[in-house]
Design a protein around this nucleic acid. Structure first.
Lengths: 207, 207
DNA sequence: TGCGGACAACTTGCATGGAAGATGAGCGGA
DNA sequence: TCCGCTCATCTTCCATGCAAGTTGTCCGCA
């Protein structure tokens, strides 16, 4: 892995686990030192994080970690709604994706039973991503990626603090996967809209 | 303007006017020299262009300018369709945006009459952007930006080579603006879908 | 006490250079 | 003729260093 990639992964990890919390000021030099690399690759990684909306770079001052706002959560879920509804309507028409999704839901239930919270979050993310990828539209997939990080920044603590939410997520995922397997686009659309609506409420409670 | 911004603007200009054509290999060093700056800021600009899908960086080799493919054009217009339909349905419900848009269409007609092709392209772009910005959803606006550049790379030559297309664009823009002013979301949706469909056909003919 | 200026300690911006990977030309041998 | 090897030349990668902007502190003065 190249130095900028390592720096990027390092920063994201800390954005998602809360080490880099909203309002914090990050210094290229410090991060570079802790990764035993120079500031150049760290700077590249921070530029990318800025593009993705996680930090804001102030010239000659440093990188401010942006807090996740309620408005941002709403924007993210509206955007995801647009993209995911389109994706499940497509997938629901063909039905090819359905069985694979149902297996993913089973795997999520297993992770939850084992208490693997982080892996559960990742599996949640994969599930949604898989649906969008199935459209075969790489631009849409890229646009969607912009809307996936915010829930991850809020989500890990969120799931632990919202009792019963994880079980609810699994039930809602199963409804989506079943509707797709049944080739029922209208049901798939309704299931996605309900799921995202509940997700928004849970995330808003978390901040 | 900072050095990386200058480099980025320089490269985009050449991507859009065709100087950097698909298949070309760009060298950081050459660009840096022609801009009288070092390679560092040029590298940053190329990274951004890569993220936006215009070039692909090959380690230790250089930056390949990616040609615009038919698949990409289709992806772009599907994505724009999703976002713009949502935006005009919102705008069409309130009607507040309508009058401003009609003025923009008049301005476009004036630019066309004066033969200002480049400004016409920019005005076209602004018109669509304005509708999306009106949603007030900054994430959606950012996602939309990813889908705006491709038509610009094809578009300038396209408009000149597709006789009557510019007049058609103006008529279609007027239909969209009028539907929004009339607070008629269904008509607005239909007008946007027709416009994007025609745009796709024109762009596909151009490559 | 409250204000203003100097300065020290931080930060990044970006130019530069050495290291090293990728490529293609040209040569030697089968 | 054709294959494979060597090597010159191209490229980027990223460490480093200097220049310069920003900030907060501290001191002197009213």
């Amino acid at each position: 892995m190249s130095a900028p990639e390592r720096a990027y992964a390092h920063i994201r990890e800390r954005l998602f686990d809360g080490t880099y919390a909203g309002g914090m000021m990050l210094s290229e030099g410090e991060i570079a030192e802790s990764l035993a690399m120079s500031r150049t690759p760290v700077h590249e990684a921070l530029l990318r994080c800025e593009f993705e909306g996680h930090v804001r770079l102030y010239p000659k001052r440093g990188a401010l970690v942006l807090p996740v706002s309620a408005k941002e959560i709403q924007e993210v879920l509206v955007t995801r709604g647009l993209i995911e509804v389109y994706a499940v309507e497509q997938a629901g028409a063909s039905g090819a994706l359905g069985p694979g999704l149902l297996e993913m839901v089973d795997a999520q239930a297993a992770l939850l039973a084992e208490g693997e919270d982080d892996k559960f979050s990742a599996a949640d993310d994969d599930f949604h991503r898989r649906i969008v990828v199935a459209t075969g539209n790489s631009l849409l997939t890229k646009a969607y990626a912009l809307a996936r990080d915010v829930p991850l920044r809020v989500g890990n603590s969120n799931l632990r603090n919202d009792p019963g939410r994880a079980e609810q997520v699994i039930a809602e995922h199963r409804a989506i996967a079943q509707a797709i397997a049944d080739r029922d686009p209208a049901a798939a659309r309704a299931a996605v809209e309900a799921h995202l609506d509940h997700a928004m409420q849970s995330l808003l409670r978390a901040i």
